[in-house]
Nucleic acid binder design. Structure first.
Lengths: 124, 124
DNA sequence: CTGGATCCAAGAGGATACTG
DNA sequence: CAGTATCCTCTTGGATCCAG
């Protein structure tokens, strides 16, 4: 495997890409994706699974993910309204890149914590 | 090394990891990394390279990246003060995961724009 | 049960002025 | 040149109440 990066610069970042990643990698999206990758969930299932998120933020995040085609929303019944959220095929393709990122975070965390301590020590 | 996590959920997200990714993938970090991956830069070089960022945000982002060991800061002279920012070895390890993410964004962008249009059409 | 509407507090971030 | 300090605005997000 070639880690030598592309000869030119694959890393160039455009505004639309930045915006997309902002929408998809925001504070709660990863936790939601994590839940929905395991099983479809109703609204309150997600609230229970991620207790720190407020109802408002959960609604907003789900709407955003739905708009971007990452999660699907299905009306199940309509008397005591039931809604089921699930991951879409497109959403599943996001998992591998995110896993790479999480793996990086996990591996490098000790180094980074060391850097933080060194920085804080000097800066004080 | 196995931390005891089940083999199927690599995607589990912990608070420290989330926080780390927030610090390192925020609005301006990717553009800064992009510049510094090509060459070390002085403060105003970066301002010119990324005209949309304010001085305040640039300072804050550089400080944060420096604290996390992603960029280095070197005082060059001291009469008309000169400072050079550069990517660290740790910072370079971030490039591959970010590239994977950007590649995802680039390939999936058409699909996502389609999803957005469909959503907006129905919701209106 | 799902989620819209409203109010409010806290933080992010821009503009400007000033300093070593 | 490379910031720091201040002010001020705008957004984000929590809490609460209400509706289909």
């Amino acid at each position: 495997m070639d880690t030598g990066a592309s000869p030119t610069d694959e890393l160039t970042i455009s505004a639309p890409h930045r915006e997309l990643l902002d929408q998809v990698l925001d504070k709660w999206s990863l936790s939601i994706l994590n839940e929905l990758c395991e099983r479809p969930c109703r609204f309150n299932d997600l609230r229970r699974a991620i207790p720190e998120v407020s109802q408002k933020s959960l609604t907003a995040t789900l709407r955003r993910l739905e708009r971007n085609g990452i999660v699907g929303r299905e009306l199940l019944s309509s008397r005591p309204v039931a809604v089921e959220y699930s991951i879409t095929p497109l959403g599943k393709t996001l998992r591998q890149p995110v896993d790479v990122l999480l793996a990086w975070a996990a591996t490098r965390m000790p180094e980074i914590e060391g850097a933080r301590r060194a920085f804080d020590r000097l800066e004080r």
